[in-house]
Design a protein around this nucleic acid. Structure first.
Lengths: 238, 238
DNA sequence: CAGTGGTCTAGACCACTAG
DNA sequence: TAGTGGTCTAGACCACTGT
């Protein structure tokens, strides 16, 4: 038995995407939806909250829930998505080159973030992403070996996230990321086709598991013309 | 009478910020909090949902609510914030120069996004942001005059958002923004101290009011060394 | 096992919008 | 005024975690 509010949410998404309504239209009222789906209003409200969070509707007090313009096919809506997911969605012609896999002692590095037990070690994977034949992204990942006991070239060649979530059964909880523009390092110049660009866009993130433990830090270095970030922000109510 | 769940949320934020607990600690259980605040568990859960959304806690089923590391003093947590709010928070030494205020007919421009009634016009404001004596940000704003009947230099000199929300009583609902890196335009070169930088970071956004109507589009052009974006993302549960 | 958070219900009252 | 969404309650059962 699936969660009821998720079933309703998914159903409403389908109905919205199949243009049962157009932009500016009102959804049926919460009471009406509660009757339609034979459930309580609070459960309907949970489904609508999800629609709102994901940018499908905007609720207006006294009026109803307005369908809003959601740029479909855009980059992650302020979410956590992996390169493989992105390229699939964008139908990009891409390739991953595993440049190096190392098993590090985090003492000497600035990896003390992935601390905890001083005996723990850290996996470091550097991968180059090629889009349309050009090397444009350098991904540097660091994993705590407490959670990822083994990394092989085969795993890194595919989607590490797929391996983590489906094979190891770990569940990603939340991530904090930072985006800045920096000068290219020697490594960038060596591994990427910078084509004279004098900057790289750097996305640094800390990824935590479902139980709030830090298990990965990441540095994704993009040639600036191959970078785009889309965000959907909602004013905090108070 | 303030909303109960907001009162509880604010109280818990204060308790967290005053280090009543440290990172990794568990909050009291929902039942215990319900007793402490003399309310129902669902109300406590609303307060905790807010804490979770804003990156203070991570809920773990069967265990409790874990206090997590929230880089305080960071740039907007995936929210909508204005330049004045930001500089205040960061205690930056900044100045705003109003470069131009125009009242446009949107027909000829690519501003047809701000359409609606073809008689409507559009306010265009260009402002230069100076930080520590250097001109590093160019903000180009376009407002639908249906919502903003008049813009003066005085208003633009201060916080337009302050004017909109406090004087006009409009309430911001949500925004969609996009971040890309582009080559500087002639205008950028003319108005900003680019110091040889060959790129600018461009943040384009569409801002909607509480009732889901589009009322502003914005282009904020940053010298790359003066750009930083911090995002807090939470995995969608399903 | 007891305790935790996750879901769900059937009501209630309120503030707001629109005709 | 009727209908909308926003808040709040007091219960219930479930899935999961630790001991």
């Amino acid at each position: 038995m699936q969660k009821k509010y998720l079933r309703i949410y998914n159903d409403l998404v389908k109905r919205i995407q199949s243009n049962s309504w157009t932009i500016g239209d009102l959804l049926p009222s919460e009471n009406e939806l509660a009757a339609q789906y034979d459930t309580s209003r609070e459960t309907i409200r949970k489904a609508l909250d999800l629609l709102s969070q994901n940018g499908y509707i905007q609720k207006v007090r006294g009026k109803g829930s307005v369908i809003i313009n959601r740029n479909q096919f855009s980059f992650p809506v302020s979410g956590i998505e992996s390169f493989t997911e992105l390229t699939e969605k964008m139908a990009l012609n891409s390739r991953t080159i595993v440049h190096s896999i190392k098993y590090l002692d985090p003492k000497n590095e600035s990896m003390e973030i992935l601390k905890g037990n001083p005996n723990e070690k850290v996996w470091n994977v550097n991968r180059i992403r090629e889009i349309d034949g050009e090397k444009v992204i350098l991904d540097k990942d660091y994993f705590n070996d407490k959670y990822i006991p083994l990394l092989t070239e085969e795993i890194c060649q595919g989607s590490i996230y797929n391996y983590i979530e489906n094979e190891l059964g770990l569940v990603i909880g939340f991530a904090q990321k930072e985006i800045v523009v920096e000068n290219p390092t020697e490594e960038d110049r060596e591994l990427l086709d910078l084509e004279g660009f004098s900057n790289v866009v750097v996305i640094r993130s800390q990824v935590h598991l479902d139980d709030a433990s830090l298990f990965q830090i990441t540095e994704s270095r993009h040639r600036p013309d191959k970078f785009r970030f889309v965000d959907f922000a909602r004013r905090v109510k108070n």
